[in-house]
Measured scan of single mutants.
Amino acid sequence: RSRTAFTAQQLEALEKTFQKTHYPDVVMRERLAMCTNLPEARVQVWFKNRRAKFRK
């Protein structure tokens, strides 16, 4: 699988949600996936990586 390049709009939506909660539930992730045209699995991995970045 190749690396996913996120658009500015996708990142904005993801970051906005991350500010609200670092652990979105499956419903919220699926809604984000639909809004951003990304698979739910990519949204889940983005949050996992973003939490790791946040802890540093």
Rank of each mutant, 00 (worst) to 15 (best):
R1W: 10
R1L: 01
S2Y: 12
R3T: 15
R3M: 14
R3W: 11
R3C: 13
T4N: 13
T4S: 10
T4I: 06
T4C: 13
T4Y: 06
A5Q: 11
A5S: 13
F6N: 02
F6T: 02
T7Y: 01
T7K: 01
A8H: 06
Q9G: 11
Q10S: 01
Q10M: 05
Q10L: 03
Q10T: 01
Q10D: 06
L11D: 10
E12N: 07
E12S: 10
E12R: 01
A13C: 15
L14H: 03
E15T: 00
E15K: 08
K16E: 13
K16D: 10
K16H: 09
K16L: 08
K16W: 08
T17R: 01
T17W: 02
F18A: 01
F18V: 00
Q19R: 09
K20A: 11
K20F: 12
K20T: 09
T21P: 06
T21F: 15
Y23S: 02
Y23V: 01
P24H: 05
D25C: 05
D25Y: 10
V26L: 13
V26G: 10
M28H: 05
M28E: 15
M28F: 03
R29T: 12
E30L: 06
E30Y: 03
R31E: 15
L32F: 00
A33Y: 02
A33L: 02
M34E: 15
M34N: 07
M34Q: 13
M34A: 14
C35F: 09
N37K: 11
N37T: 04
L38F: 01
L38I: 12
L38H: 00
L38N: 00
L38D: 00
P39K: 10
P39V: 02
P39S: 13
E40G: 04
E40A: 09
E40Y: 04
E40D: 04
A41D: 11
A41S: 12
A41K: 12
R42L: 14
R42N: 03
V43M: 02
V43R: 05
Q44V: 07
Q44T: 13
V45Q: 14
V45T: 15
V45L: 12
V45G: 08
W46Q: 08
W46K: 02
W46A: 07
F47A: 03
F47V: 01
K48W: 00
R50G: 08
R51D: 00
R51P: 09
R51M: 01
R51A: 01
A52W: 00
A52R: 09
K53T: 12
